[in-house]
Design a protein around this nucleic acid. Structure first.
Lengths: 213, 213
DNA sequence: TTTTGTATTAACAGAATTGTTAAACAACTT
DNA sequence: AAGTTGTTTAACAATTCTGTTAATACAAAA
């Protein structure tokens, strides 16, 4: 049995956490404008005054969610770069697979991030500065590795950024367009698990054939 | 010089049209929830009462836009199927190219439609019924054509729907992620026109290599 | 036991937004 | 010119939503 102090702390953390969970769900599915603090509070099982007590404003609550989601998005994006210790073709193959899995476990993430950036570009300008320098160095290395592999005749010469965009396109669009495609594709998408496995294989195949000599 | 009757009619049509134009812009960039009827009215140069006079409610104004955009989306999607009178490889190549061009001329369209369907799926259930029968017949034909081309050794055997999804992914994601990618990709995307030409070529290449034996 | 800080509720305030209405107005018809 | 019709404006009504506050409960610390 927990003592009262611990229980209190837990209960507080639970309320805060439940608000955050409810907020995540609301913001990811409805966006900032569509989300309602009253609706979040209700889903979390607290009065809306409590929500303001813990997070002050809708804006601040939203930023808590945004921060985490942008971090996750960056993480998943890096997964697409693959493990530089592997031979190039393996690196790309596992990069595509890992990225697909990452997006599959966070299917609402890309649309949320994209919508956020489309609707308030100014707000994220600072992120670009930071991200760009990272990306520039990572890509220089990746491009050099690709160039060497191409010289060795292991794969075709290709622009690393273009290849990267193709991987992102194939993997992310699968989940962004899911609600749009699912009712149209009938049997192909009837069994979710099977479809995702097939789609993953298809995306890998598409990328691998792109880099094949 | 126009007579007064014509001028009136034109002015009315202009006001209505200007509201529609402003509404399209507002809804496509901010979504239904983020859009403000007052802001639309202001952009159209009319009082907000006028907007209600012409379109009654925000909802009805929105539906005017949605109807047109869904129609356009269907049209652009069909473009990806290509011209069935062409030999298979040419059909696919021009299908990808035409679809890319279509999306390029309506860059905000896919994200708008996807967001709409994600946020209010019930509302568009009826569309699916209609679309699904069309798609089923079109695909049966397309798949048969692909199968025949594959038997003749012109291309690999591939699931038509999977190929179609890849084309949509590569072309649409280019524009959906544009604001997200542009600040990160530096020189590659610095010149819009050039980047789009390169991206189009890359998408075509990716699809063509996918179907090559 | 008193004090102190935190958690919670209910009621309310303020702002923004959508939508309505009555009256003025303009143009056309007869 | 009078009436008819459709357009426009300004003011207002109603609602919804965010955020605040005052009162209260309650547990821990002193």
């Amino acid at each position: 049995m927990l003592n009262s102090k611990t229980m209190d702390t837990n209960q507080k953390q639970n309320k805060e956490k439940e608000i955050l969970t409810a907020a995540e769900n609301e913001f990811l599915t409805k966006g900032y404008d569509g989300a309602r603090t009253t609706s979040i509070a209700k889903a979390a099982g607290v009065t809306h005054a409590m929500l303001h007590y813990y997070f002050r404003t809708k804006e601040q609550l939203f930023e808590r969610i945004v921060d985490e989601k942008f971090r996750l998005m960056a993480e998943s994006t890096l997964a697409a770069l693959g493990d530089s210790s592997l031979p190039m073709k393996e690196r790309i193959r596992t990069g595509v697979a890992n990225h697909f899995d990452f997006v599959a476990s966070n299917p609402l993430l890309p649309l949320f991030v994209i919508n956020e950036i489309v609707s308030r570009p100014e707000r994220y300008a600072f992120l670009h500065e930071r991200a760009k320098t990272i990306i520039d160095t990572v890509y220089r290395g990746l491009q050099a590795d690709i160039d060497r592999a191409a010289e060795r005749g292991e794969m075709v010469q290709i622009n690393a950024k273009m290849l990267f965009m193709s991987i992102m396109s194939l993997n992310i669009f699968t989940f962004i367009a899911y609600p749009f495609m699912k009712p149209l594709m009938g049997d192909l998408m009837a069994n979710d698990e099977r479809f995702l496995a097939e789609r993953k294989a298809e995306n890998i195949e598409t990328i691998m054939k792109r880099i094949e000599i």
